[in-house]
C-alpha cells in the first residue's frame, strides 16, 4: 500500500506513456432477428496523464465501448473482433489483450478496479443503499489487497478527503442517500480510485449534475489526473465538456469512429461532415441572442434500421450518390493522432 495518497504517485508513469490501445473493436448484439452493431471497428490510444474524450449522441456506442474494454457488456452483447491492449502497472508490465480474457476470469477481475476503474453517470444506482459509503469503499480496497479493516478504513477516509468530501471522518459512516448528487459523484470517484488504477473511464460523469456542480467535478478530475498521471477516458455527449477536458477526441456515430484527433483540430478544423454539422448545431453560450442554429436534417436511425454504406449518408450535406450509400468508408490516416472515415478524404478500400 502506498504510504500516502495525497502525495503524487510514487512511481507515476511519464505523461504520454501509452497505457491502453484499442484496435478494431467490434461489439455486436445478436437478437433473434437482427444484429445491432453497437461498436463497429473502434480504434484509439489512451495515454498516462492525458484525457481521451469519446463524444457522440445516443446509440453511437460510446458506453458500450467502455463496457467492452472492461468486459462487462450485457448479454446478448459480445466482442466479435478487435484487440484491447493494456500495459499494466502504468506502462511497466507486459501488455495483455483484454478482449481475449473471459469476462469472469480471475485475470479480468484483477484488472477491473485495480488497473482500470469506471465512474458511472448515475451515482445513486451504482451504490448499495444498505451499506455506508465507507463500507463500500473498504470493500473495493480489500478486494484487491490484503489490507486489514483498520487500514482500509483509514484509507477510505483519506480517499474521501482526496476527492474533496468535507468532514470525511463523519461522511465515511453515512449512507449514499444522505449525500447530495455532487457528493455522491465525489464518493463514486473515491471508490474508483480506491485501488490506485492507472486508467479511469468516466461514462457521462456529470450529465446528471447541475452546471455548478459539474464544474466542481470536472475540476476535481483534472486535479486528480495531474497528481496521479491518470489516463482518463471521458465519455460524454456534451461538446462543451469535451472542449474543456479532452486532449484527444474520438467522435462516434452509430458504432463507428467517424473522426479522431487532437481536441484543437477537432474543434477548429473538423474534417468529417458529421463533426462539422454537430459543431455548427450545438447551442453556444457565446452566441448572439436569438440566432437560429444550423441543423442536421433528420434524426438518428434506429440501430436495427442502419442505413447502407456510410451510416451518416442520409443526413450528410456532402452525400455523394452511388458512393456513400454503397460502401462503408475506410479510415484515412492523416497523421498518428488524426484520422477520418469519409469518402471526401479517400476512404476507398
Amino acid at each position: 500500500m502506498p504510504p500516502t495518497l495525497m502525495a503524487e504517485r510514487a512511481a507515476a508513469p511519464a505523461a504520454g506513456t501509452p497505457i491502453l490501445s484499442v484496435r478494431g473493436l467490434k461489439t455486436y448484439f445478436r437478437a433473434d432477428d437482427g444484429v445491432v452493431r453497437a461498436v463497429d471497428g473502434v480504434s484509439f490510444d489512451v495515454r498516462a496523464g492525458r484525457t481521451l474524450g469519446i463524444v457522440g449522441e445516443s446509440g453511437c456506442g460510446k458506453s458500450i465501448t467502455a463496457r467492452s474494454i472492461l468486459g462487462i457488456v450485457d448479454r446478448p452483447g459480445k466482442i466479435e473482433a478487435g484487440e484491447v491492449w493494456l500495459t499494466p502497472g502504468g506502462g511497466t508490465g507486459a501488455p495483455i489483450d483484454l478482449a481475449k480474457l473471459a469476462s469472469d476470469s480471475a485475470e479480468m477481475r484483477a484488472i477491473r478496479g485495480k488497473e482500470i476503474a469506471l465512474v458511472f453517470q448515475e451515482p445513486m444506482s451504482s451504490f448499495s443503499h444498505y451499506y455506508t459509503v465507507g463500507n463500500q469503499i473498504m470493500e473495493a480496497i480489500r478486494l484487491h489487497s490484503d489490507a486489514t479493516k483498520q487500514q482500509a478504513h483509514a484509507r477510505a477516509v483519506e480517499l474521501l478527503r482526496l476527492v474533496g468530501v468535507p468532514k470525511p471522518e463523519r461522511r465515511v459512516d453515512e449512507y449514499p442517500f444522505q449525500l447530495s448528487g455532487g457528493l455522491r459523484q465525489r464518493v463514486m470517484i473515491a471508490m474508483a480510485l480506491a485501488c490506485d488504477p492507472h486508467v479511469l473511464i468516466a461514462d457521462e460523469p456529470t450529465t446528471a449534475l447541475d452546471v455548478t456542480t459539474q464544474a466542481q467535478i470536472l475540476d476535481l478530475m483534472r486535479e486528480l489526473q495531474a497528481k496521479r498521471a491518470l489516463a482518463l477516458i471521458l465519455i460524454t455527449h456534451d461538446m462543451g465538456v469535451i472542449a474543456e477536458m479532452a486532449d484527444d477526441v474520438v467522435v462516434m456515430y452509430l458504432g463507428r469512429v467517424v473522426e479522431r484527433g487532437p481536441v484543437d483540430a477537432i474543434f477548429h478544423d473538423p474534417k468529417h461532415p458529421y463533426t462539422q454539422a454537430l459543431l455548427r448545431s450545438i447551442p453556444s453560450i457565446m452566441a448572439t441572442p436569438r440566432t437560429k442554429l444550423a441543423t442536421i436534417s433528420g434524426s438518428i436511425p434506429h440501430p436495427l434500421n442502419r442505413p447502407t454504406g456510410c451510416p451518416f449518408h442520409p443526413r450528410c450535406p456532402d452525400f455523394k450518390p452511388g458512393v456513400c450509400d454503397k460502401a462503408e468508408p475506410a479510415t484515412t490516416v492523416i497523421d498518428d493522432r488524426r484520422e477520418v472515415a469519409c469518402f471526401l478524404y479517400g476512404g476507398g478500400a
Binding site: 433473434d32 432477428d33 437482427g34 434506429h302 436495427l304 434500421n305
Partner: peptide
C-alpha cells in the same frame, strides 16, 4: 423495433 416485430423483411 420494426425488424424485431416483423422478423426479417
Amino acid at each position: 423495433m420494426i425488424a424485431r416485430l416483423f422478423g426479417r423483411t
